[in-house]
Simulated assay, not measured.
Amino acid sequence: MTATVSTRPRTAADQGAAAGEPGQVRRGQPATKIIVTGILVVVALYFLVPVYWVVVAASKTTDDLFGTNGFWFGDTFALFDNLAAVLTYGGGVFVRWLGNSVLYAGVGGLIATYLAAAGGYALAKYRFRGNNLVFGLVLGGVLVPGTATALPLFLLFSQLGLANTYWSVLIPSLVSPFGFFLCRIYADSSVDSSLMEAARIDGAGELRIFHTIGLRIMTPALVTVFLFQIVGIWNNYFLPLVMLSDQELYPITLGLNNWNSQTDRLPEFYELTTGGVLLSVIPLAIAMIVLQRFWRGGLTEGAVKA
């Protein structure tokens, strides 16, 4: 039997059929890209439009704020005058609030990140009785909203004499169940047990192994936890509202709400509030810009274990 070999040139249709008709997939890709791009544009506008409105509102006088288009600048560009008024009002109380927020978010974020790293590393790399039970209890803490624990914490700190102090806001900020969960997952996937064994053979103690090997490998996850923690503490409102009565201890969120509550009696507080909101966004924007490359890495690295 003689086999017949066709010499007809292969067409694009033949090539598509031989390859499982990828042409059909390619025809569907442009539509998918358009839909995904459209969704991303909508999401970007959802986050950027409020920021744009804050910039525009902070540049207006009180009359222009209510007498002109909300999404365009007014007749008088008063941005720098408003910002100067914010920084000098009440003897510079806004600067005090800003410093308090930096203290709460900075110190609380650093310590919470370290504790989350230590706890997550321990549960991931050491096996002991009750390991999974402890992890489950901490994971359950992620499901408990902060507002549900604010009042019990206030009663506890009142009995300890710590209410209306820096400690009443700082101490609850030192615990991050989400950070603990993330560090545990990341350490389990990225910290190789063979490195720990090699360090033990070289005579290193467990704390030294954690600080010299564990923390360095977990750096992307730690930066991720730190970023989430400082944003959460910076935007926290209910806990300081319950704990604090002294305006000198207010974070920036509580201080701005205090100004906003006075706008009905004193309209000039509109200019102070909008200018203060703009200034309060700047530190978070700087933190996001500086840490975004670590943030992206922290969400993806260690997700797949070879």
Results as ranks from 00 to 15, higher is better:
residue 4 T to K: 13
residue 90 G to L: 04
residue 49 V to Y: 12
residue 109 G to Q: 01
residue 151 L to K: 06
residue 189 S to L: 03
residue 157 F to N: 02
residue 302 G to I: 05
residue 254 L to T: 03
residue 213 I to H: 04
residue 15 Q to T: 08
residue 155 L to N: 13
residue 257 N to E: 10
residue 45 L to Q: 04
residue 191 V to M: 10
residue 71 F to Y: 13
residue 306 A to Q: 13
residue 17 A to I: 06
residue 83 L to G: 01
residue 215 L to K: 00
residue 305 K to Q: 11
residue 47 F to Y: 14
residue 148 A to E: 11
residue 78 A to K: 02
residue 305 K to L: 05
residue 162 L to K: 12
residue 235 N to G: 08
residue 153 L to V: 06
residue 145 P to K: 07
residue 166 Y to L: 15
residue 216 R to N: 06
residue 295 W to G: 01
residue 154 F to G: 01
residue 191 V to A: 09
residue 213 I to N: 01
residue 36 V to C: 08
residue 115 L to E: 04
residue 248 E to F: 10
residue 188 D to N: 13
residue 153 L to T: 12
residue 119 G to F: 00
residue 233 I to Y: 09
residue 238 F to L: 14
residue 228 F to L: 15
residue 172 P to Q: 05
residue 91 G to C: 09
residue 207 L to W: 15
residue 273 T to M: 06
residue 137 L to K: 04
residue 56 V to E: 00
residue 241 L to M: 13
residue 294 F to I: 00
residue 70 G to A: 10
residue 286 I to H: 04
residue 23 G to S: 12
residue 272 L to H: 04
residue 93 V to P: 03
residue 109 G to L: 01
residue 44 A to M: 13
residue 54 V to N: 11
residue 152 P to H: 03
residue 272 L to D: 02
residue 269 F to N: 15
residue 88 T to R: 02
residue 298 G to V: 06
residue 133 L to Q: 04
residue 228 F to H: 12
residue 270 Y to Q: 11
residue 212 T to C: 11
residue 223 V to T: 14
residue 90 G to F: 03
residue 36 V to A: 12
residue 193 S to N: 12
residue 84 A to R: 11
residue 107 V to K: 07
residue 13 A to P: 04
residue 120 G to S: 05
residue 137 L to Y: 02
residue 27 R to H: 07
residue 135 F to Y: 14
residue 64 D to V: 11
residue 30 P to V: 07
residue 94 F to E: 00
residue 3 A to M: 12
residue 193 S to V: 14
residue 231 V to N: 07
residue 213 I to V: 15
residue 245 S to V: 10
residue 102 V to H: 06
residue 180 F to S: 03
residue 1 M to G: 14
residue 111 I to R: 01
residue 38 G to M: 08
residue 53 W to Y: 12
residue 92 G to K: 08
residue 176 S to V: 10
residue 161 G to A: 05
residue 273 T to Q: 02
residue 169 V to H: 02
residue 10 R to M: 13
residue 95 V to P: 00
residue 19 A to V: 03
residue 51 V to P: 01
